[in-house]
Amino acid sequence: MKINKNTFILLSYICLTILNFKLLIMKKITLLSAAFLVSAFGFAQTETYVSETGGINDPVVYVNQNGGIEADCSLSGPGNAFENGKSCTQNLGRIVAHDFVVAADEDGLLEVINANVFIGGTGSGVNAAFVDVYVWGDAGGAPDPGNLITSELGFVPDNQVVVGTNFGFDVWDLTLDITDVALPGQSGVATSYWIGLSVEATDASNLFWENSTAGLIGAGEAYDDGGGGGFVIDNTLEGVYTFDVECEPILGVGDNLAELVSIYPNPATTRINIQVPGNIEITNVALYDVLGKNTGATLVNGSVDVSNLAQGVYILNIQSNRGTLTQKIVKR
């Protein structure tokens, strides 16, 4: 079939119009898809409070939130039926911290942290991949970034259990049996510390450390939103947590180190055990014979192996951050 020039021009124009229309439709679909993804995921990654995520406030409590005190001066923040939570998402640079006060004339030793965190949709199985743990000194009622006592980054929780649900999230109780952290006290005055957490979910989603208005324990909740502005204190909120802390009296100049250190058995046949309070750090242990020769015995996991030593009398020398102790040991 022969097509004249005018017909060819008309057909070409129609084809171009159709092509442009298809491109326009595809562009609109792409923009709508992007807008949907932003609304579905982008905003969910930036909310500060779990109550802002759009989930229904309908708490279901599986486990009593009152918590338990394990050590002599541990501290628990009160729950309130999963009232709310503050974002502490690691990939957003966010940190939430709460204060712990060591009483005057005491030293503290932080051993275990438990924290309730909203993570993942209800029944999804999404929980904590790891936690960054921080301990700061205090600066006028807020964490002191220039006085970082210690940090333990990438810590994998020792245990995680769902204790309830709210706002469409599971609430997980995270147990963090961290490396013990010394919290030195002061004579005659209390000493404040701040314990902070930044948590990463297994699906990298936004998550929230549970808080409530059920009762303020200390200075309140410190929040760093990751934007570079540092910590902001909300003195109306308290986190839901347990800080498992052992406390011991500060050893003064007049205190007898021998009364605080336990050495047993004596006489000994195979091993000598040495136990000290949490506020005493052993820096060196040596065992000498009666001629003053070092036997080479060392302290391993709180005990000294004497099984290869000859029977007789030895002198045990213990050096610590609170002084030196010398004691006679009998090997049978």
Rank of each mutant, 00 (worst) to 15 (best):
A142V: 15
A115C: 14
R94D: 15
H98Y: 13
V96D: 10
A129P: 05
T122V: 12
D138Q: 05
F130G: 06
E106P: 13
V101D: 07
P143C: 01
F100W: 10
I95S: 03
I113S: 05
Y134H: 07
D105Q: 11
A103S: 14
R94L: 13
F130V: 08
G125W: 03
D99P: 09
G137F: 02
V112P: 10
A97Q: 07
I113V: 14
G108L: 11
D138F: 00
V96T: 15
D132Y: 03
P143M: 00
D107S: 15
L110I: 09
V133K: 05
G93D: 07
G108T: 13
A104M: 11
V117D: 10
G121R: 12
G121T: 13
N116L: 14
A139F: 06
A129L: 02
V96L: 06
G123S: 03
H98K: 06
L92G: 14
D144F: 00
N147S: 08
V117R: 08
E111Q: 15
I149H: 05
L109V: 15
V96F: 05
G121C: 11
V135F: 05
I149M: 06
D144K: 00
N114I: 12
N116M: 13
N127Q: 04
A104H: 09
I95T: 08
N91K: 08
F118C: 04
V131G: 08
G93A: 09
E106Y: 14
N91Q: 12
G141H: 01
L92K: 11
A115Q: 15
